[in-house]
Amino acid sequence: MSGRPQKFDPNFVIEAAMKAFWDKGFEGTSTQELCDKTGMGRGSLYHSFESKSHLYEQALLRYHELGIKEQTRILLADDSAINRLQALLEWGTNCDTSSESRRCCMAIYSAIERSGKDSKVDKINRHYFNKLESLISSVIEQGMTNNELRNDRSTLEATRGFIASYYGLRILGVLNPSKEFLSTVISSIIENL
């Protein structure tokens, strides 16, 4: 006689797994740690999510969902283009430096750790990146039209330069979480727009 399957909240499990993977990455997070964080047994975890890789993909999708929601709120705010771009930079550094663990953006971490090893993770990250690039491009185009930003380059060039600065800033925030240091970097990025 087999027991009844234990009910679980998949959203809770995905959130708990997201936090575990965010702290230690895919390779650094053991199945036992996932069981401990989610409250599920190994068999139940694999029965419900197929594999550690599949759970990681679900956790990464959840991370992107939360991130793009907040980034969209910032970039579509009723403010000048320059202020919205600066707010995005400040939000990113605050995310990366607000906890003692100083954990890096999970999207960046996943790209560094899993790119070329997991085509599904690559696809998830590209989809997220394309959304963010589109949002930033729209803000930069508005800023150029309103003469808030330089007009001596294409929108695409300005957008990709900003994105490179944004992700570089996020990594710097983990390496040197000094608010003064990061504020100087943000000012420099904004001045070059």
Rank of each mutant, 00 (worst) to 15 (best):
V139D: 02
I190G: 03
F49A: 09
K123E: 15
E157S: 15
G28K: 05
E70L: 08
E90N: 00
I163C: 04
N151C: 13
A111V: 08
V13T: 13
E148Y: 05
E57M: 01
S134L: 08
V174M: 10
K37I: 00
K120D: 10
I74P: 01
S137H: 06
H47E: 08
T145H: 10
G143F: 06
S53F: 07
E33R: 07
I82F: 00
R160S: 04
E15D: 15
K52H: 10
T93S: 00
L193R: 07
F162Q: 10
L85E: 02
Q142W: 00
Y128D: 07
N151G: 12
L45H: 08
T31L: 15
V185A: 07
T38P: 09
D23I: 04
Y46V: 03
R84S: 03
L34M: 04
I136E: 01
I190N: 03
N146V: 02
L34N: 03
R126H: 12
R153Q: 15
N11C: 02
G161K: 05
I74N: 02
S51N: 06
L88F: 02
H127G: 03
E27K: 14
T93N: 01
I163F: 07
E15R: 14
Y63I: 04
G67C: 12
T145R: 09
G28W: 05
A59C: 07
W91K: 01
I82L: 13
Q86V: 00
D9E: 13
G143I: 04
T31M: 15
E50W: 01
K37Q: 15
L60T: 09
D9Q: 06
G116P: 03
D36K: 11
H47W: 01
G41A: 12
T184I: 14
